[in-house]
């Protein structure tokens, strides 16, 4: 009986802790987002982060999308040829890339690159008193550190996903036409025949949500880091793990919202 009660207590503590964390993150997000509509938004900081996220993440996102499109075409061909369905490859590539792989893989790449950097930078600022210094310099850290990152990531991610979509489809086209022998015009015609506006829009909505999540987890984990270098390291790891898991979980939720019948 005692063991059972101990187990219940353990589960209860974990649940309470999870609820508290969820509440903390929600309040943090609200506090950060509230500065988007208040006067004095730091546009200079926003510009810096937008370039960092949108421009400097381009190579990693582009390469990931290109190779994913290539592999997808190759794997689809291997599988579909067993059922004489090779002609569906163009459709599979374009739908997979625009609906799922573009936003999810770009999200995971940006989470690794930007989410970690945000957590490390803000975490270091926390443990070296720079965040307290901001307050003493009459600057709200939520306005200066969090709000511009949230907006920059939310706006930059859809742009990255547009590039990822184009390069992913191009990767499939490349393999389809050069290696698998498809006629370029027919491959492209099949690609555009099957593609609908909603496929692209759903991917862009996912991208915006993932961008917000990556910035939220990066800033929240950094802002709440404790201790020295070890604390910053842990905050960085937590930011990447949490945003990656949330990306995958919310991918399902958004897909359900757009495409379930």
């Amino acid at each position: 009986m005692t063991r059972f009660l101990d187990l219940l207590a353990l589960i209860g503590r974990a649940l309470i802790s999870a609820c508290r964390t969820l509440g903390d993150v929600a309040l943090f997000a609200l506090a950060g987002a509230s500065h988007l509509v208040r006067p004095g938004f730091p546009f200079r900081q926003f510009g810096r982060h937008f370039v960092e996220i949108g421009y400097f993440s381009l190579p990693v996102v582009a390469l990931t999308a290109l190779f994913t499109g290539m592999v997808l075409a190759l794997q689809s061909f291997t599988g579909f040829s067993r059922f004489n369905a090779e002609s569906a490859i163009a459709s599979v590539v374009v739908l997979s890339v625009t609906r799922e792989l573009g936003p999810v893989l770009a999200g995971l790449m940006v989470a690794g690159r930007i989410g970690a950097a945000m957590a490390a930078e803000i975490g270091t600022m926390r443990v070296t008193d720079q965040i307290d210094a901001l307050t003493t310099l009459s600057t709200d850290p939520m306005k200066y550190l969090v709000a511009p990152r949230l907006l920059a990531a939310t706006l930059a991610m859809p742009l990255l996903v547009v590039v990822a979509d184009i390069l992913g489809v191009f990767g499939g086209f490349l393999i389809g036409t050069v290696k698998l022998g498809f006629v370029p015009q027919i491959y492209l015609a099949r690609t555009f025949d099957v593609l609908q506006t909603m496929d692209v829009v759903s991917g862009l909505v996912k991208a915006a949500v993932f961008g917000f999540l990556i910035a939220l987890m990066g800033t929240w984990c950094g802002y709440n880091s404790k201790g020295g270098a070890q604390g910053v390291g842990q905050a960085t790891t937590r930011a990447v793990v949490a945003s990656s898991i949330l990306i995958l979980a919310l991918d399902y939720v958004i897909t359900e919202a757009f495409f379930s019948r």
């Binding site: 270091t124 008193d129 720079q130 210094a133 003493t136 310099l137 009459s138 600057t139 200066y144």
Partner: peptide
């Protein structure tokens, strides 16, 4: 806070900004 200054133990200078922006941070903000 507007009429308060603080020198932190380790300086707490902002790494991402040049020295001149650090010095005039409050005035610019």
């Amino acid at each position: 806070l507007d009429r308060t200054g603080m020198l932190f133990q380790n300086g707490a200078l902002f790494d991402s900004l040049p020295v001149w922006e650090n010095v005039c941070f409050k005035l610019l903000a």
